[in-house]
């Protein structure tokens, strides 16, 4: 079981690094799906089966498919990949990566220098999560509902295509149908 966890963690980290370094956006999205699936395996192994299912259904199934739909809609060609290759120049990423790695080393040192204890291995069933969610965190659920509502309305309002009406004499922009 432990070796499975480490393999899943390695796959998740390697897939995340591949996402950051790809030039073709569809390849990056597929690597992101692999990373999310490996994360779901980790969740399942430490005793959170409900969250593993949510990760696959919502993250890998809904959010990534939304990304893929938008990429298909934008209909990017070969010149986008060429542009990305030119933008991903070497001198552009040395210094930010160095600074981030220093921060990562600091956080790793802080984590390692603390006390450590193995996971107690109790599997938390979905019923317990649901009971806690709808009793203690009820206000959070309502706030999440409001946030999703605002997201839906905002996405609809922003992505609406403005219609161009060309009259014989005057051209009006933004007339909505």
């Amino acid at each position: 079981m432990t070796i499975l966890f480490y393999i899943a963690a390695l796959i998740a980290i390697v897939a995340s690094i591949m996402v950051v370094t790809r030039t073709n956006i569809i390849h990056a999205l597929l690597y992101m799906v692999i990373s999310l699936l490996a994360t779901a395996v980790m969740f399942f192994l430490i005793g959170a089966p409900f969250i593993a299912a949510m990760e696959i259904i919502i993250y890998a199934g809904a959010i990534m498919v939304l990304f893929v739909f938008v990429v298909m809609m934008l209909n990017l060609g070969k010149q986008a990949v060429e542009q990305e290759k030119r933008w991903l120049s070497t001198e552009g990423w040395y210094f930010p990566s160095l600074l981030s790695l220093i921060l990562l080393l600091e956080i790793g040192y802080l984590i390692v220098s603390g006390q450590t204890a193995p996971f107690n291995g109790r599997q938390i069933p979905p019923a317990e999560v649901g009971k806690e969610l709808y009793s203690t965190y009820l206000i959070g659920v309502e706030l999440a509902a409001i946030l999703l509502m605002a997201g839906i309305i905002g996405a609809y309002h922003l992505a609406r295509r403005k219609k161009y009406v060309v009259h014989r004499f005057l051209k009006t922009e933004g007339a909505e149908q």
């Binding site: 990304f67 999703l148 839906i152 922003l158």
Partner: peptide, 17 residues
């Protein structure tokens, strides 16, 4: 997860526009 879903929806709508 909820926050990520809302953020992605609005961000992708902005990209399309």
């Amino acid at each position: 997860l909820t926050t990520a879903a809302a953020e992605v929806a609005v961000g992708l709508a902005l990209i399309i526009q």
